[in-house]
Protein backbone atom coordinates (compact mmCIF):
# COMPACT_ATOMS: atom_id res chain seq x y z
CA UNK A 1 0.00 0.00 0.00
CA UNK A 2 1.41 3.38 -1.00
CA UNK A 3 1.11 6.33 1.34
CA UNK A 4 -0.81 9.34 0.12
CA UNK A 5 -0.49 13.02 0.88
CA UNK A 6 -3.54 14.85 2.11
CA UNK A 7 -4.22 18.39 3.24
CA UNK A 8 -7.04 19.17 5.58
CA UNK A 9 -8.03 22.01 7.84
CA UNK A 10 -8.91 20.97 11.36
CA UNK A 11 -10.27 23.55 13.77
CA UNK A 12 -8.90 26.33 11.56
CA UNK A 13 -5.38 24.90 11.34
CA UNK A 14 -4.23 23.41 8.04
CA UNK A 15 -2.25 20.17 8.12
CA UNK A 16 -0.49 18.32 5.33
CA UNK A 17 0.07 14.68 6.17
CA UNK A 18 1.50 11.56 4.60
CA UNK A 19 -0.69 8.62 5.49
CA UNK A 20 -1.64 5.15 4.38
CA UNK A 21 -4.89 5.35 2.41
CA UNK A 22 -6.65 2.72 4.53
CA UNK A 23 -6.52 4.92 7.60
CA UNK A 24 -9.59 6.84 8.60
CA UNK A 25 -10.20 10.44 9.51
CA UNK A 26 -10.69 9.18 13.08
CA UNK A 27 -7.21 7.59 13.05
CA UNK A 28 -5.72 10.82 11.75
CA UNK A 29 -7.46 12.98 14.34
CA UNK A 30 -6.63 10.74 17.26
CA UNK A 31 -3.22 9.38 16.34
CA UNK A 32 -1.61 12.02 14.12
CA UNK A 33 -3.12 15.23 15.45
CA UNK A 34 -3.57 14.20 19.09
CA UNK A 35 -7.23 15.20 19.02
CA UNK A 36 -8.72 12.43 21.15
CA UNK A 37 -12.08 14.11 21.77
CA UNK A 38 -13.69 12.08 18.98
CA UNK A 39 -14.05 8.56 20.35
CA UNK A 40 -13.76 5.16 18.80
CA UNK A 41 -16.85 3.24 19.88
CA UNK A 42 -17.42 0.76 17.06
CA UNK A 43 -15.30 1.56 13.96
CA UNK A 44 -18.34 0.93 11.81
CA UNK A 45 -20.57 3.96 11.98
CA UNK A 46 -23.02 2.38 14.37
CA UNK A 47 -22.53 4.43 17.53
CA UNK A 48 -21.77 8.03 16.56
CA UNK A 49 -19.08 8.54 19.23
CA UNK A 50 -16.65 9.77 16.55
CA UNK A 51 -19.01 12.36 15.05
CA UNK A 52 -17.20 15.45 13.72
CA UNK A 53 -18.21 18.08 11.21
CA UNK A 54 -16.72 17.80 7.73
CA UNK A 55 -17.47 20.76 5.49
CA UNK A 56 -20.22 21.60 7.96
CA UNK A 57 -21.98 18.23 7.94
CA UNK A 58 -21.94 15.67 10.74
CA UNK A 59 -19.99 12.56 9.72
CA UNK A 60 -18.77 9.45 11.47
CA UNK A 61 -15.02 9.99 11.32
CA UNK A 62 -14.49 6.23 11.48
CA UNK A 63 -16.17 5.88 8.07
CA UNK A 64 -14.23 8.62 6.31
CA UNK A 65 -11.07 7.38 4.61
CA UNK A 66 -8.03 9.61 4.67
CA UNK A 67 -8.32 10.40 0.96
CA UNK A 68 -11.92 11.49 1.35
CA UNK A 69 -10.87 14.07 3.92
CA UNK A 70 -8.31 15.61 1.55
CA UNK A 71 -9.11 19.26 1.00
CA UNK A 72 -11.84 19.27 3.61
CA UNK A 73 -12.53 21.49 6.56
CA UNK A 74 -13.04 19.53 9.75
CA UNK A 75 -14.38 20.74 13.05
CA UNK A 76 -13.96 18.66 16.19
CA UNK A 77 -15.06 19.05 19.79
CA UNK A 78 -11.66 20.57 20.60
CA UNK A 79 -12.40 23.50 18.28
CA UNK A 80 -15.74 24.36 19.79
CA UNK A 81 -14.91 26.39 22.86
CA UNK A 82 -13.25 29.66 21.98
CA UNK A 83 -10.84 31.36 24.36
CA UNK A 84 -11.78 29.22 27.31
CA UNK A 85 -15.50 29.96 26.89
CA UNK A 86 -17.76 26.96 26.45
CA UNK A 87 -19.89 26.96 23.31
CA UNK A 88 -23.58 27.35 24.24
CA UNK A 89 -24.19 23.70 23.28
CA UNK A 90 -21.44 22.54 25.62
CA UNK A 91 -22.73 24.80 28.38
CA UNK A 92 -26.26 23.46 27.90
CA UNK A 93 -25.06 19.85 28.19
CA UNK A 94 -23.38 20.74 31.50
CA UNK A 95 -26.36 22.70 32.81
CA UNK A 96 -28.96 20.12 31.80
CA UNK A 97 -27.09 17.32 33.56
CA UNK A 98 -26.84 15.56 30.19
CA UNK A 99 -23.35 14.20 30.82
CA UNK A 100 -22.81 10.90 32.59
CA UNK A 101 -19.92 8.69 31.49
CA UNK A 102 -19.27 11.23 28.76
CA UNK A 103 -17.95 8.90 26.09
CA UNK A 104 -20.76 9.74 23.66
CA UNK A 105 -20.77 13.42 24.53
CA UNK A 106 -18.24 14.84 22.03
CA UNK A 107 -20.15 13.12 19.24
CA UNK A 108 -23.51 14.21 20.64
CA UNK A 109 -22.35 17.82 20.91
CA UNK A 110 -21.03 17.84 17.34
CA UNK A 111 -24.19 16.21 15.99
CA UNK A 112 -26.19 18.85 17.86
CA UNK A 113 -24.05 21.58 16.35
CA UNK A 114 -24.66 20.27 12.85
CA UNK A 115 -28.38 20.37 13.57
CA UNK A 116 -28.45 23.85 15.05
CA UNK A 117 -26.19 25.28 12.35
CA UNK A 118 -28.77 24.28 9.78
CA UNK A 119 -31.95 24.46 11.81
CA UNK A 120 -31.79 27.02 14.61
CA UNK A 121 -35.33 26.35 15.76
CA UNK A 122 -35.69 22.59 15.78
CA UNK A 123 -38.77 20.80 16.98
CA UNK A 124 -38.21 18.00 19.50
CA UNK A 125 -38.70 15.48 16.69
CA UNK A 126 -35.95 17.19 14.65
CA UNK A 127 -33.57 16.84 17.59
CA UNK A 128 -34.38 13.16 18.05
CA UNK A 129 -33.78 12.52 14.36
CA UNK A 130 -30.54 14.47 14.30
CA UNK A 131 -29.24 12.41 17.23
CA UNK A 132 -30.63 9.07 16.10
CA UNK A 133 -27.18 7.90 14.98
CA UNK A 134 -25.57 8.70 18.29
CA UNK A 135 -25.92 6.02 20.95
CA UNK A 136 -25.90 6.94 24.62
CA UNK A 137 -26.23 4.10 27.11
CA UNK A 138 -26.24 6.19 30.29
CA UNK A 139 -28.73 9.02 30.03
CA UNK A 140 -31.77 7.66 28.22
CA UNK A 141 -31.42 10.77 26.00
CA UNK A 142 -34.00 12.84 27.91
CA UNK A 143 -31.53 15.37 29.28
CA UNK A 144 -29.56 15.39 26.03
CA UNK A 145 -32.68 16.41 24.13
CA UNK A 146 -33.36 19.07 26.77
CA UNK A 147 -29.79 20.32 26.43
CA UNK A 148 -30.17 20.81 22.69
CA UNK A 149 -33.44 22.68 23.26
CA UNK A 150 -31.70 24.90 25.84
CA UNK A 151 -28.79 25.51 23.48
CA UNK A 152 -31.13 26.42 20.62
CA UNK A 153 -32.84 28.91 22.89
CA UNK A 154 -29.54 30.39 23.98
CA UNK A 155 -28.17 30.63 20.43
CA UNK A 156 -31.29 32.46 19.29
CA UNK A 157 -30.66 35.09 21.95
CA UNK A 158 -27.01 35.52 21.00
Amino acid sequence: MKPIEITLTVNETTHTLITLPNRTLLDILREDLGLTGAKNGCESGECGACTVLMNGAAVNACLVLAGQADGCTVETIEGLSKSGQLHPIQQAFVDAGAVQCGFCIPGMVMASKALLDHNPQPQEEDIRQALAGNICRCTGYTKIIQAVQMAAEELRHD
Binding site: T76, S81, L86, Q90, V94, V99
Partner: peptide, 17 residues
Protein backbone atom coordinates in the same frame (compact mmCIF):
# COMPACT_ATOMS: atom_id res chain seq x y z
CA UNK B 1 -23.27 19.91 37.72
CA UNK B 2 -20.79 17.13 38.11
CA UNK B 3 -17.14 18.07 38.28
CA UNK B 4 -16.02 16.13 35.25
CA UNK B 5 -18.76 17.48 32.95
CA UNK B 6 -16.53 20.34 31.81
CA UNK B 7 -13.71 18.10 30.63
CA UNK B 8 -16.19 15.71 29.05
CA UNK B 9 -18.00 18.36 26.98
CA UNK B 10 -14.70 19.77 25.75
CA UNK B 11 -13.24 16.39 24.79
CA UNK B 12 -10.44 16.73 27.32
CA UNK B 13 -11.45 13.84 29.61
CA UNK B 14 -8.81 11.13 29.50
CA UNK B 15 -10.23 7.68 28.93
CA UNK B 16 -7.66 4.88 28.82
CA UNK B 17 -7.10 5.09 25.07
Amino acid sequence: PRRDALEKVTGQAQYVA
